[in-house]
Amino acid sequence: MLQTLKLLLPALIPSWRFFDWIAPSPRIEIKVNNDWQEFRPRPDHVSFPTMMKRMVWNPYVNENLFLASCAERLVDNPADQHSYEQILNRILADINDQKVTSLQFRLAFIHREGNALKKDIRYVSKIHDVSGAQA
């Protein structure tokens, strides 16, 4: 209960320091058939009508923003089981229709160094046997 109240306090006394600096940006990557690929890559293009629809119905993007927060928390605290499970469960739900027997994810962080973008792998999960978890 005390922990929940501690989570409430920043909402009641907010800091409002939005985007005060642009932090390294997380990407979740999953290993499928020995290849690392980005989990939920963004589409090439989003039309204006789709943007309008997303004003009231945007669960997928908001879930991705939540997963980005989980990735940041997990890198800050690798023992954070909650964030680990939130990411893992979403990946499991998404790969449900693919023939995958094992699953591993990693967290890459992209930042700028001078004029170049740099990608650091800051977390690698254990390997999960998911052969029995699929339909």
């Binding site: 409002w16 320091r17 939005f18 985007f19 005060d20 600096w21 642009i22 940006s25 997380p26 990407r27 963004r42 589409p43 090439d44 293009h45 989003v46 943007m51 997303r54 993007v61 991705n64 923003l65 980005a68 992209i110 930042h111 700028r112 973008l117």
Partner: peptide, 30 residues
């Protein structure tokens, strides 16, 4: 939110917003 941006050279130069578009997790499309 405006004050912290004003104090940051990267925001004043436009570089921070360039970073937002270039590599942050936020833009909705490539």
């Amino acid at each position: 939110a405006g004050s912290v941006k004003f104090k940051n050279l990267e925001w004043r130069s436009g570089l921070a917003l360039q970073d937002v578009f270039q590599f942050s997790a936020y833009p909705v499309s490539e």
